[in-house]
């Protein structure tokens, strides 16, 4: 089997639709004949099973993290033939970076084409480490300012965390203050955070692929009007001008009571309302994620 692709679905904020996107993406991938595994790695309140329409399983990720089971022993089947999942844990525990590394390494050895991590909200290091190891990083943003703000913090935290890990021997100053300095005193149109980093630490990136082989991708969820459709492209432009970082805008998903209804009746939205406009939007976005975009990205990375 070709190598496994790892996806992580994150957000700066809770309750924005991470589990909805993770489960729907899992369903879409499995329908495209990809053997897919969903892992609920929300360490604060796992709810992926609900979005997926499955009862909570007794065996969960905690059994792996506390060395009581191998990852493969935790895999549950679902109503979809190519889709499998691992239940999340309600035990917050004391998770370390090394636990994440062990989890990702073991996951990569499992016989799946696609593995999707549904993360909890925020930028705790366990999530940043999971994101760092993921081939695809999808961030869910809703049009409310607090959610936008928290996602900018997540982008920043992931950027600084990744730079630090990749250059632990070259950079020995804390990076947060470097970013704050830049925020205070930057000149529109002439400098970006990328330049400032160079002057403050002596290191900066030449190609973005040095930090993120694939760009962070933004999905705008719970869109309620056409004006909200401008949000994704705007976030992309702002990130380009501020950080000198290219973000991909993958698409917008409308707010639709169908999602809420399907959560209530514990059925996957794509199953319960396959012909709703939202299901159509999702399928279109999933196709884009899976075909043209990723291909052109990896081609560009090779050139």
């Amino acid at each position: 089997m070709a190598s496994t692709r790892i996806w992580s679905i994150g957000s700066g904020k809770g309750g924005v639709g991470k589990s909805f996107v993770a489960s729907s993406l899992g369903v879409s991938l499995s329908r495209m004949n990809q053997r897919t595994l969903l892992i609920d790695f929300d360490l604060s309140g796992p709810n992926l099973h609900t979005a997926l329409g499955e009862p909570p399983a007794r065996k969960n990720i905690d059994h792996f993290l506390s060395d009581q089971a191998s990852l493969s022993e935790l895999i549950q089947t679902t109503q979809f033939s190519n889709l499998f999942f691992i239940q999340g844990t309600t035990n917050p525990g004391d998770r370390k970076i090394s636990d994440v590394q062990r989890l990702v390494a073991e996951a990569r050895r499992l016989p799946f084409n696609e593995i999707i991590f549904d993360l909890g909200p925020g930028s705790q290091e366990t999530y940043l480490e999971t994101l760092r190891h993921s081939d695809e990083k999808l961030f869910i943003v809703t049009p409310e300012p607090p959610c936008i703000e928290k996602n900018y913090r997540l982008i920043e935290n992931l950027l600084l965390y990744t730079i630090k890990v990749l250059n632990f021997d070259k950079i020995n100053v804390p990076l947060k203050p470097v970013l704050e300095q830049y925020r205070e005193a930057h000149l529109p149109g002439t400098t970006t955070f990328r330049d400032h980093l160079k002057s403050a630490t002596g290191w900066t990136w030449d190609q973005e692929t040095e930090i993120f082989p694939n760009p962070i991708r933004i999905i705008v969820n719970q869109v309620r009007g056409d004006k909200d459709l401008d949000l994704g492209p705007s976030i992309r432009l702002v990130c380009k001008h501020f950080f000198s970082l290219k973000i991909d805008y993958s698409g917008s998903l409308y707010f639709d009571n169908a999602v809420w209804q399907s959560f209530r009746t514990v059925e996957p939205m794509l199953m319960k309302y396959p012909f709703s406009p939202l299901a159509g939007q999702f399928q279109a976005m999933a196709r884009k994620l899976l075909t043209s975009d990723l291909h052109s990205q990896s081609l560009r990375a090779v050139v």
Partner: peptide, 9 residues
């Protein structure tokens, strides 16, 4: 007033 500017610019 574009919310995408919020806390960045």
């Amino acid at each position: 007033g574009n919310p995408a500017l919020y806390t960045i610019f």
